[in-house]
């Protein structure tokens, strides 16, 4: 499964970068969303994907019984998801403000800091 995900991740990254390179600011936002998903999947895939063994310790036991999924990348991704939302919200509002000020959604027109 991991090797299959590697290709998916590649495609997601490519799509994200392509969207972020567009001059229309709305597309930039879409690219940002794809990028954060791609990054999360990347961390998830390289640490190994295990089916049906969540990193929980059953009641009464002191340690998990048998092999479980790696909890560390999950902890990293969990915060990454929430932070990505915060950053996305910031970016979206910033873009919206920029659009209002510049009056144009072409990124190449947003060159000056003075407007």
């Amino acid at each position: 499964m991991e090797s299959l995900m590697a290709y998916v991740i590649g495609i997601l990254f490519a799509a994200a970068i392509y969207m972020m390179l567009r001059r229309s600011i709305v597309k930039l936002v879409i690219g940002l969303i794809i990028l954060s998903n791609a990054a999360n999947l990347l961390i998830f895939a390289v640490s190994g994907m295990t089916r049906g063994a969540p990193p929980l310790i059953p009641e009464g036991a002191a340690a998990p019984l048998g092999i479980i999924a790696d909890p560390l990348p999950q902890a990293l991704i969990l915060t990454a998801i929430v932070i990505a939302f915060g950053v996305l919200a910031f970016a979206v509002v910033l873009i919206h403000r920029a659009y209002e000020v510049v009056g144009n959604d072409d990124l190449d027109q947003m060159k000056d800091t003075d407007t």
């Binding site: 590697a6 991740i9 490519a14 994200a16 970068i17």
Partner: peptide, 10 residues
Amino acid sequence: VAVLMGVLMT
């Protein structure tokens, strides 16, 4: 450029 990046990530 995007495809290059994608291939690299894969």
